[in-house]
Simulated assay, not measured.
Amino acid sequence: MGTLAPYLLARASWLHRAPTAAITAWLGLAATFVVSGALALSHLLLAEPHVHDGLVGLLTACGLMTGDPVRAASPTPADLAAVLLPAAVVLLPALVLVRISWRTRRARRRQRDMLALVGSPAPQYGATVVEHEVPAVYCLPGRAPRVVVTSAALRVLSDEQLRAVLAHEHAHIAGRHHLVRAAVEAFARAFPGLPLARLAREQTALLLEMAADDRALRGHPREALAAAMYEVAAGQTPHAAMGAGGSGSLVRIRRVLDPYPKPGRATGLAVVLTSAAAPVLPLLIACGPGV
């Protein structure tokens, strides 16, 4: 799950054609790794014979079901490790996520306070305009979301192009893409060096932008969005913000102008259902003999 599967998923030909389903697949793979890792540690470290009888054996060893008497002796260091290490696999990414969310929320609050001082509201666009010599469009998601446009972007973009790229940013906000990015970032920091963590972070960042592109294309021409993406490609976004530019702009522009046929709804639904069911598979394997 952590080494082979991510490379296979990264090479799949359908990822860019169905970015939302692909994001679900990466999240499902990460969740499956956490569950399978915790169960594998429990299975290897617990010496109780009941544990190897599946779910019933595990509950019996914990004293939650009747069976052979549970040892009355004090827990040994091995017993503690058998509980703490699997718990750490589950709790570590959760704790990192809490830390990232707190820091990101504080950074966004500072950015909003700064925008209140230097920005000018543009209600006709539902955005805030700031003076800057580089064209850039980005959003600050969260509880009080803001879409920011630089003065240079207003000068170089036509009205149609500007509204297309603004729709891209509003898609980020409406889709709560910042939550997905935070979850993947927490997983990557919790398991540094793991191929799954590295590839999931890289792929998900690009797929989130593609998902926002698809949402914007529902109401705007492809040429307008592609032109706007080209103009703001070099724009830098603050920490905790999500921008329309970035390193993946060229790939996204080509995708927008020359789209591949999207997979059918049945295929997308199958990917989503498989991704949601994948974390349950390790539980069935570990607990199957006792069920």
Rank of each mutant, 00 (worst) to 15 (best):
H132W: 07
A25M: 10
A12N: 10
I253P: 09
M65A: 13
C139M: 05
V90F: 05
R143L: 09
P77W: 01
V184F: 04
L207M: 07
L140V: 14
E133W: 02
Y7F: 14
A72Y: 01
A127K: 05
P135V: 01
H52A: 13
I173P: 01
S249T: 15
A233D: 09
R163H: 14
L217S: 10
L29Q: 08
P279M: 03
V90P: 08
R99T: 13
A186R: 06
L46D: 15
H177M: 02
A188Q: 09
S36Y: 05
A211V: 01
G28H: 05
A73M: 02
S101V: 06
C139R: 04
H178A: 10
R103G: 10
Q124H: 12
W102Y: 05
P259H: 11
A234E: 11
R71A: 15
I253F: 01
A107F: 00
P221N: 08
A88I: 02
P75W: 12
A270G: 15
P261H: 06
L58Q: 13
R222E: 05
W26F: 10
V35E: 04
R105H: 13
A233G: 08
I253Y: 04
A18E: 06
R108D: 02
A116F: 00
R222D: 05
V83T: 12
Y260L: 13
A5F: 12
R163G: 09
L196S: 12
F33A: 15
L15M: 09
R163A: 13
V232M: 04
Q236G: 09
L269I: 02
A240G: 11
D159P: 04
